[in-house]
């Protein structure tokens, strides 16, 4: 096994299974649907809230996608092979998260214009929302990868993983929605985007190390 063949098989697996992509996408649409139905369908509520609604939905569907990211590898023995391959486990984790990010986020971004429009989100500011998603979601994936690694061997790991990871998502959600809100009221939002990028970069550096450590401990 080398990094290239690993990346290729991860890519093939995710693209062929499609399940992660479709589930995340459906979940995303459903959560967004809940807000007009459950709270208020008027433009007066939805327009200012749309950034927050989209981000909550994104965070939840990412949690869904990330939660079981190593489950199959754990069950079919692939994790054991990663550990004994002599390759760097953090780097393998990094590649896996990266592929996962691509197959989940790209479809979300594709349906985003439609959903944003349904939430009365001003179309001129769509690029801001897309920027927050591109800069912020890597952090959500990388942080989630740690929780998933910690709970992969546990029978009821899903709820536990939510409890562990969701509080850590708060800053990303705050800064992302802050940027969107600032843009909506015509203020500068580059600061928030910079913070999002910083959080994502930090997560990108630290998370593969901690996830690798957790996988190793899980395989005990």
């Amino acid at each position: 096994m080398n990094y290239r063949s690993f990346l290729k098989s991860e890519w093939l697996t995710l693209v062929r299974r499609k399940q992660d992509t479709i589930n995340a996408l459906l979940f995303f649409v459903m959560v967004i649907l809940l807000f007009p139905l459950g709270v208020d369908p008027s433009k007066a509520f939805l327009e200012p809230a749309s950034g927050g609604i989209v981000w909550c939905a994104v965070a939840l569907s990412i949690l869904m996608a990330v939660e079981s990211m190593y489950k199959e590898d754990f069950n079919d023995g692939s994790l054991e092979q990663w550990l004994t391959s002599g390759l760097s486990l953090p780097y393998l984790v990094f590649l896996k998260v990266f592929v996962q990010w691509l197959v989940v986020i790209v479809p979300l971004l594709l349906v985003l214009p439609l959903l944003a429009n349904m939430l009365f989100f001003p179309i001129e500011q769509l690029m801001v929302m897309i920027s927050t998603l591109l800069l912020g979601t890597p952090a959500l994936f990388f942080i989630g990868a740690i929780g998933s690694a910690l709970t992969v061997s546990l029978r009821r790991g899903a709820v536990l993983m939510l409890l562990l990871i969701l509080p850590l998502y708060i800053p990303v959600i705050i800064f992302a929605t802050g940027a969107i809100r600032a843009a909506q009221s015509g203020m500068s939002y580059s600061g928030q985007l910079a913070i999002l990028a910083a959080i994502s970069l930090t997560a990108l550096v630290l998370s593969p190390l901690m996830a690798a450590l957790s996988i190793k401990a899980s395989m005990n």
Partner: peptide, 27 residues
């Protein structure tokens, strides 16, 4: 780097074909 380990679970991805599985391990 100098060993092969085969455990209780064979580490075969069920969604990939036999060929693709082997290609992953022995590129």
């Amino acid at each position: 780097f100098d060993q092969i380990y085969l455990g209780h679970t064979p580490g075969i991805k069920s969604i990939l074909s036999v060929n693709e599985n082997l290609r992953m391990y022995c590129p």
